[in-house]
Amino acid sequence: MIPLGWYLIFAAALFAVGLFTALTRKNAIGILIGVEMMLNAVIVNLLAFWHYWVQQAGVPQLDGLTFAAIVFVVAAAETSVGLALIISAYRRLHTAVANDMDLLKG
């Protein structure tokens, strides 16, 4: 008996905190942590809407579950590649601070 809005507010807040983390932490792993939090907020959102949708429709719905599963997969893929990149960059540049990785700077 929880209002849908509570979940949405929670998800928005978690997203905002994650965004803040991703924007401000200097360490590249910190950025990745922020992104993970944002993805988690998205999952909460998707499943809250899934619940709402099942309730409205009265029959089981699968789209929301599928979307949530895809987000999980993408999050896992993103973390593994991201961390591997950070470790590889750390090995070459001896830093995990994102601002020092500016090889692409023109």
């Binding site: 924007l23 401000t24 700077k105």
Partner: peptide, 14 residues
Amino acid sequence: LQNGHEQTYMLTAV
């Protein structure tokens, strides 16, 4: 803005 740091770009986008 043109400093090559992705977080700045991200912030701009946000």
